[in-house]
Simulated assay, not measured.
Amino acid sequence: MLIVIGYMHVDPADLAEFSVDLKSLAAATRQREGNISYDAVLDNPGDSRLLIAERWADQAALTAHLEAEDTLAFVNHWQGRMRGDIRKYDAANERNLDDE
């Protein structure tokens, strides 16, 4: 499993439009093969910082998402108006929180 997590920033003036576009993308993404979860939450309204958290079955599923027409359209539309620090992690030992 892959975990993708980090922060995305947009100008406060763009937050409403960005949120609508991201909500639409998220709904489509959650239906994609290999997507386990795809979530975004406004972490800090003052600086329009969103926490992005995704889980993917494997790299092929993530790559298909990144190359999907709607993902590319979203990125192209917001290119230059969003910035982020989002990282990808391999998770090879998934277990319940209270498991050792």
Rank of each mutant, 00 (worst) to 15 (best):
T63S: 11
T71F: 09
D14W: 08
R95Y: 00
A91V: 14
Q79A: 15
E100Q: 12
E17V: 07
V75F: 10
G6P: 06
E17R: 15
R81V: 06
K23L: 14
E100D: 12
E100Y: 13
A91S: 13
D85G: 12
P45A: 02
L51Y: 03
A28Y: 05
V10D: 05
G84P: 11
E54D: 01
R81I: 07
A68T: 11
R49G: 13
I5D: 00
E100H: 14
D98A: 12
R95P: 04
P45G: 00
R87K: 06
R30L: 07
D90V: 06
E33A: 05
F18L: 12
D47P: 04
V20K: 12
S48H: 05
A61S: 04
T71C: 13
L42Q: 10
L2K: 04
L66A: 14
L50G: 01
A53Q: 05
Q59A: 10
I36K: 05
L15C: 10
S48F: 06
L42N: 10
V75L: 14
I5N: 07
D99G: 08
A64L: 03
R81L: 03
H65K: 03
L51I: 05
A53H: 04
R81K: 11
Y38D: 02
N44V: 06
N44I: 00
E54R: 00
Q59W: 03
Q31L: 09
D14L: 13
L72A: 09
K23C: 14
S19I: 10
I52Y: 04
E94W: 05
Q59R: 07
R32H: 05
D99Q: 13
A13T: 15
